[in-house]
Write a protein that binds this DNA or RNA. Structure first.
Lengths: 365, 365
DNA sequence: CCGCGATGGGAAAGGGCTTGCCGACGCGTC
DNA sequence: GACGCGTCGGCAAGCCCTTTCCCATCGCGG
């Protein structure tokens, strides 16, 4: 912005000038041209030495390297990207770094990115679909070589279309994208088996003897929540549970959401024997809510979540959940976006979800 | 990298060629020049309309916008950065996204960054000091306008000097840096009162009647660990506790580290009445370690941590800790780096650390 | 001694964008 | 009607690199 290049004076310094004002360092980054001048070679040669794009004879080679070192030259990655027509940046769009679900996924992505010596642009949407769209634009404008979105997954058709449209634009411009947990967007996709996982969970819970359930669901518009709810319902039906009186409470997909839903559930009257929170963050909130109200888990009510996020390890009682290999999902998405040839037909990787019974769900007598 | 522009044939297409192959859309991003051509104005005008750098008369203005929309033009941010001589990217270097301490800080940074409509480059060092150095280089080469490091804080003099040197180079090139939890690096700094906090914690624990302590410390080379240990010791001395037989175990600054240290502590013989883990992640590990060994907290041993990370909220027993406003620290660092004029003398912000007594530390009879 | 291919250096043409400058134009004023 | 002024287009010169040519040089066999 306030670039204020103060170069007007800046012609080539004659030897005398060098003697005259030795310490007057131009501020701002050192340029390749300065390195070249310092080494007494042409710009082209300096470039070739430093980027290793072609062999350069020893005398010159050494001098360029020395000059670069002495001047503390750092190539301008932006200019390089422009000149080469390709960047080494990967875009990552998630909801929130603070949410363990997303940070685990981000961790997986980062690992892959680091292995390839790339760099990641991180953007967090805070669940705002418009920001999501906006960020796709931003990423595109930064010409990221790959884009990974772990996003909204809303049922909002209009939004999904716009997103698909954006992504198509991104792809048309030569980028590779992978979306986590949502397919049919015309990109690579890594999708957890939400429905199957929830179905399996329902089955296990029924096998523990539970018949009366409540579900703490996310916002109605979220596909993830809907899929898990649907799967759970199917599972119950398969086990012969009457789903008619299944209590389903909708709230935010956050800890606070879970907490207040638990409170609402308690207020509504007799508790079911088992509560399924469609994700672990909500389950943790619910756990806190129950505890605050003096409702004991699992004695008074059983509680299960979904995702098997890391902090679950330290909770008491340990939470029953449906395990998702979050880091792997991130890593896989990164691989899809980074290792696939552009123009390949997009792949969809299904991720297995596995029920893990722990102490928060008890067997009924 | 494999840029492979398919231009060898690529001289300028003659009008005839255009007629010959009308639908052959060049792949790759749409260029500003194409937009300009489409709108029938000059490149300059198109640029001005789209960047709003100068007012442009209505007939042209409208046509440029229409053309841009129709062609789905996205400006090349890299080229813009080169041309403008300033980028709108902020660099963030942390150890690990998966660690709640760092992700909280990252969250704070992100908030500030988003408010300013900038974008962040995230790099994680996984506690590797060399990678840290490397990343500073990378960030510098990407010409990030601000750099926030939440890093190693090692006692390794050589490394610190190299880091300071790197940062000085970055600053000389016109960048603004802020470092979290380490000062004397010649940059802005946000430093938590580790020592004071630990001292206060020691005092509170003594007031609960504890006299025999153990400290689960991080690697010897980590300043954060050392400061907290020092402060804790000072606090004990101030309370008249004999520090001679204070048990100090060193391990990794991770959950696993805490877990195995707890095991070691148990194996070593009679437990002290209270254990201080120098950070919460270790404390959580220790809690798990104790639990696994059948040692009850706080009945058999009291346990305290430091940082007050988010997952602590859901742990049972709730953990006594020293609260640090992590998000704010990140936000503050971002502000320092973003809102300060370059060349200003660097500021150091001290962050208050406050003891929060919870259920994991009990009062001795 | 000459021609040959291989090698390495440099000038210059990009890459996609911004912006300083100039000139054209329309308007109001005296 | 001439002049000044403000507005707005466009040319072209940047920004900092990479890479394509092309030419000079060199070693070498014929």
């Amino acid at each position: 912005m306030t670039a204020a290049r103060e170069s007007p004076t800046g012609r080539r310094a004659t030897p005398d000038e060098v003697v005259g004002a030795p310490a007057v360092r131009r501020s701002g980054p050192v340029l390749l041209s300065e390195v070249a001048a310092h080494a007494g070679v042409s710009l082209a040669t300096a470039s070739r030495v430093l980027s290793g794009s072609r062999s350069v004879g020893e005398p010159h080679r050494g001098r360029v390297l020395a000059a670069a070192q002495e001047l503390r030259y750092t190539p301008n990655a932006q200019a390089q990207a422009v000149a080469r027509g390709a960047s080494n940046v990967v875009g990552l769009i998630i909801h929130d770094v603070l949410d363990p679900y997303f940070s685990s996924i981000a961790g997986g992505v980062m690992r892959q990115v680091e292995e390839r010596e790339l760099v990641v642009f991180l953007a967090s949407t805070h669940s705002d679909v418009d920001r999501e769209l906006e960020f796709v634009q931003t990423m595109r404008s930064h010409r990221v070589r790959a884009l990974i979105i772990c996003g909204s997954r809303t049922t909002d058709r209009a939004h999904n279309e716009r997103l698909a449209h954006e992504l198509e634009g991104y792809a048309a411009a030569g980028g590779q994208a992978a979306v986590i947990s949502q397919d049919r967007l015309g990109t690579h996709a890594v999708v957890p088996q939400n429905r199957t996982g929830a179905r399996a969970l329902a089955r296990e819970l029924c096998r523990l003897g539970h018949r009366r359930f409540a579900v703490l669901a996310g916002p109605r518009g979220l596909l993830t929540s809907r899929d898990r709810l649907t799967g759970f319902r199917e599972g119950l039906v398969a086990e012969g549970v009457d789903v008619a009186d299944l209590q389903v409470l909708h709230g935010e997909f956050t800890r606070e959401g879970g907490e207040s839903l638990a409170a609402r559930l308690i207020a509504q009257g007799p508790l079911p024997t088992c509560v399924f929170a469609v994700n672990d963050v909500m389950a943790l909130g619910a756990l806190a809510g129950f505890r605050a109200a003096g409702v004991r888990v699992p004695d008074d009510v059983s509680l299960a979540g979904f995702d098997d996020i890391a902090p679950l390890r330290d909770v008491v009682p340990s939470l029953t959940s449906v395990h998702l290999p979050l880091e792997e999902m991130g890593a896989r998405a990164a691989q899809l976006a980074l290792d696939t040839e552009p123009q390949t037909t997009s792949q969809a990787v299904k991720v297995h979800a596995e029920v893990v019974l722990r102490d928060s769900t008890r067997r009924l007598a």
